[in-house]
Design a protein around this nucleic acid. Sequence first.
DNA 1: TTAATCTTCACAAAAATAGTAAACATTAAT
DNA 2: ATTAATGTTTACTATTTTTGTGAAGATTAA
Lengths: 139, 139
Amino acid sequence: MLSQKSKYALKALGYLAKNQADGPVLMSTISREKKIPQAFLENIFHELKKAGFLTSHRGRFGGYTLSDDPSKTKVSSIIRVVNGPLAMLPCVSLNFYATCDDCCEATCGLRGIFQEARDALLQVLENRYLSDIIDKDIE
Amino acid sequence: MLSQKSKYALKALGYLAKNQADGPVLMSTISREKKIPQAFLENIFHELKKAGFLTSHRGRFGGYTLSDDPSKTKVSSIIRVVNGPLAMLPCVSLNFYATCDDCCEATCGLRGIFQEARDALLQVLENRYLSDIIDKDIE
DNA sequence: TTAATCTTCACAAAAATAGTAAACATTAAT
DNA sequence: ATTAATGTTTACTATTTTTGTGAAGATTAA
């Protein structure tokens, strides 16, 4: 499951994608609208900024804007930053590869299936973008 | 990522699938061969037994056997027991559905994509069986 | 100058994960 | 019956991860 932090991050980025047309959006606004504890959102935005997704604007009338076009920002890349690997085993992760302790990759019976699982998941998440996860308006 | 416990469970069940032909297999054997702390494996086997995957045989010359044909035991169902939901959001889980706090399902922009992700993952894991995750022999 | 922002860093509470310990119950062989 | 080998059960503990909180500081536009 995605962590709460990851959900917050995706919601916040989606909010920005929807509302940044008129300039930087306040963290306090996002916190309030998306019901995210502000101090926690600060931590999250710090990570997202460090990873290049966000651009911050300090001072009065500051706020945050997205660094890139929402239609070019993959959901998979956001999740990797805030939630870590998408693969279910470290030894089949493309971006966070690590050996499994005490497990021989040559004979492991799990790798094959979890490579397939990874590919199936990536087929979706690598082809969906921030512009695809914007909340709908209430009607 | 799968928890360590889940990896242990899959490895242990795979070992049973491979080695139970001659009768019940000792937990101590599985613990040693698969390098799983025995006391921890006891907890895991208790869960797997409660869930119906394992049959235990007490007393001298006891041990464990699989309750069902390995070719009919889905990997997805094992993971659900020891690791929990396969979906990335509670609100799109088929077997562990729960509402996301402070999130409106009607307008949430995340649900659609994570339903697709769930389906993609299940397409693999619901169609792979315990017989598919048996470790290879060293050659 | 000032008020509204973001920045940074350290800390803390809560939950989940991983693992341990020990007394107990059951069984098969003898 | 006895005995040794096994699983059973329950409670506990340690570690790590997650989910936050708090406060002093830096920057900017008006």
